[in-house]
Design a protein around this nucleic acid. Structure first.
Lengths: 69, 69
DNA sequence: CGGCAATGTAAAGATATCTTTACATTGCAT
DNA sequence: ATGCAATGTAAAGATATCTTTACATTGCCG
């Protein structure tokens, strides 16, 4: 049972009307990192994942899910 | 405001009476990885963090916290 | 159409995460 | 005290995550 992480960062970001640029500034990371994570180039680190939860004020389940490959 | 990830993996594991060795087998990772994470040598990846939540059947807040440095 | 903001993408380099192999230490049961 | 299971630790190597710089594409507003 192979598991893979999916995220809904882009959806959540758009519903809040925030740009990648603003997110990057707020979170003190680069825009490219946000873009890569949104487009599933790679997963965020746990640290970044926790910051995203805090930033959007959502639970982990609302952003990340472990799905079968 | 520097933030750092803390975890309670060791506490949770011990309350459930599970060894690092058994955890490693169950989660299909190495014992050294569990040991390193428990002793805060580095953070688990988001993927491993999600697997740990599922394995222990706990919420993210029960395992991980973002604390000030 | 032209300009601008937002987004997508790419490549090189730095650091983090994880594995493999191996050995040392601890603590508990016999 | 000896043996054994569990834990701690270390070093080398592989892959993942993130930054920096740079340029391309998209879409929308004037």
């Amino acid at each position: 049972m192979l598991l893979k992480v999916r995220n809904r960062i882009k959806e959540i970001r758009l519903t809040k009307g925030i740009s990648q640029i603003q997110m990057a500034e707020d979170l003190q990371i680069t825009r490219q990192t946000i873009n890569a994570v949104e487009n599933h180039k790679y997963n965020p680190s746990l640290e970044l994942a926790l910051k995203l939860m805090k930033y959007f004020n959502v639970t982990i389940d609302e952003i990340f899910t472990l799905e079968e490959e």
